[in-house]
């Protein structure tokens, strides 16, 4: 079958989103900016969810390239193996919303570049893999960028026990998703369903904050 080359206009896509989400909700989503830090199992699915909602602006940040061992749970394809994750993910998102405003940065986040890289976005997703990195960004953002909203994750390895994955409010501007304990180790790995559950919690919390709009 031929590819559909009849691409809808930006206005048509916005109208379809309003029809599904209501005009008032879509108005808020359209003006929100979100940074996704880490584009693995969590970040790639968070980005897909928010992009499907027609988020105003997405900032995709990761230093990694797509690897074969990622494909059990991350939103990438065979043809993207070896590509930097930010631009590979950007491609995936533009396939269903060609007018999204997406900034990509193929870089490792550290205490030295966080302030600069996260300056523009109100909402920040911590979607890292390594616990030291999770702690680093969480401490930095809460300490130095108190006006931001941070939604992080800890504990989503293995399978089953869906209801142990939850969202907790830790501070007025910090929410943590996951079961808090299930770590990736030699006995249990990261698998698509549970990682996607946790990613959905994060995206859903971000969406709630955007629509509640207490900024």
């Amino acid at each position: 079958m031929d590819k559909n080359t009849n691409i809808p206009s930006k206005e048509e896509i916005e109208a379809a989103l309003e029809l599904r989400h209501t005009k008032a909700v879509q108005e808020k989503i359209r003006h929100a900016a979100v940074a996704v830090c880490g584009l693995g199992g969590l970040g790639s699915h968070i980005a897909i969810s928010l992009a499907r909602c027609g988020i105003g602006r997405l900032h995709l940040i990761d230093f990694d390239r797509v690897d074969l061992t990622n494909l059990n749970r991350q939103q990438y394809g065979i043809e993207q193996l070896g590509r930097p994750k930010p631009e590979a993910l950007r491609e995936e998102l533009l396939a269903f919303h060609p007018y999204l405003d997406i900034q990509t940065d193929f870089v490792k986040l550290s205490e030295e570049n966080l302030s600069e890289l996260l300056a523009e976005e109100t909402y920040i997703c911590e979607a890292f893999d390594v616990p030291e990195q999770k702690a680093m960004i969480t401490n930095y953002v809460l300490e130095h960028m108190p006006e931001k909203y941070l939604v992080g994750a800890s504990g989503m390895a293995g399978y089953g026990n869906s209801n142990a994955i939850r969202t907790r409010k830790i501070l007025s501007h910090y929410y943590l998703c996951g079961d808090g304990v299930s770590e990736k180790n030699e006995h249990q790995g990261l698998m698509a369903p549970r990682v996607m559950l946790c990613a959905a919690h994060q995206a859903n919390m971000i969406l709630e904050l955007i629509i509640r709009d207490e900024t």
């Binding site: 880490g38 616990p131 030291e132 504990g155 299930s182």
Partner: peptide, 10 residues
Amino acid sequence: LEVVSFVGGG
């Protein structure tokens, strides 16, 4: 107090 102790995976 709440001590958030991060575990690996993402």
